[in-house]
Nucleic acid binder design. Sequence first.
DNA 1: TTTAAAGTTTACTTTTATACTCAAGAGCCT
DNA 2: AGGCTCTTGAGTATAAAAGTAAACTTTAAA
Lengths: 137, 137
Amino acid sequence: MKLSHKLEYACRVLAQLGRSHGQEKMAHIDTLAEAEKIPANYLVQILNELRNAGMISSKRGKQGGYALSRRPDQIRLDEIVRAVDGELLELNLENDGASGPRVAEVWTKIGANLEKEIKHYTLDDLIADDAAQMYYI
Amino acid sequence: MKLSHKLEYACRVLAQLGRSHGQEKMAHIDTLAEAEKIPANYLVQILNELRNAGMISSKRGKQGGYALSRRPDQIRLDEIVRAVDGELLELNLENDGASGPRVAEVWTKIGANLEKEIKHYTLDDLIADDAAQMYYI
DNA sequence: TTTAAAGTTTACTTTTATACTCAAGAGCCT
DNA sequence: AGGCTCTTGAGTATAAAAGTAAACTTTAAA
């Protein structure tokens, strides 16, 4: 069970956008790519998915750029995961063989618990400088 | 974040071995493959990894086969994951860019919590027929 | 109204991991 | 001895992730 780079990039770029939330100027893709050391051409796609998921807004042309479309504390971590990576814990399960059903049951429960935990984190937690305000289960 | 087939297979085959735990005869790979609908040639590798991790024992030749080397309630789910899939929640993290450190911190914490939860499950939970005896966090 | 600065979209390539398949070898029992 | 069963290591195919590239559209300011 690996975290994808894409998800990490998404978290990082959103954190970056979160820091400048409220400012007039929108952030440029090249600035974001630079600040977070993400390949710009790849970042393009990620920002696209985040926009389609309604987390950020964008504007073309001069004065264009990206910005959060909601307050950082209104963007939950599980949304981010789903926007770029699909289901949180994708059980690829075949649910076959003698033990299939039972095994599927257990992992489904684990997935549900993971989801419940991840829902508690918001973009604010990814911006904060110290761990104090993080939610502990 | 996807569950691999390999992990599902490992869970299933261990559950199967768990059901015949205590019996005289060892289970044959072909029987296991049949019962759990796992490609026998692939199962070979999985059983190997489980043996190297000390969860099962094996014997060659006539009367040979596989068996659990511990009681089912002594085999934790997190061990199974690690035996076939490596780290539980592998942060592929680059930990780079302005937000890298903080993002890594959050995901590390999530990984730690997941580990804590998964440790509560044992092979017994994968064998049981009803959910009643499952541990709920 | 032209132009340059942005984002948008789509297609392609490369790399890596998963999920297998296969076959020769080694131990064990009768 | 001889067959049964695990052991080991190499090889392959498919798919997904990660990254690259370029033509296209919109916008604002000169």
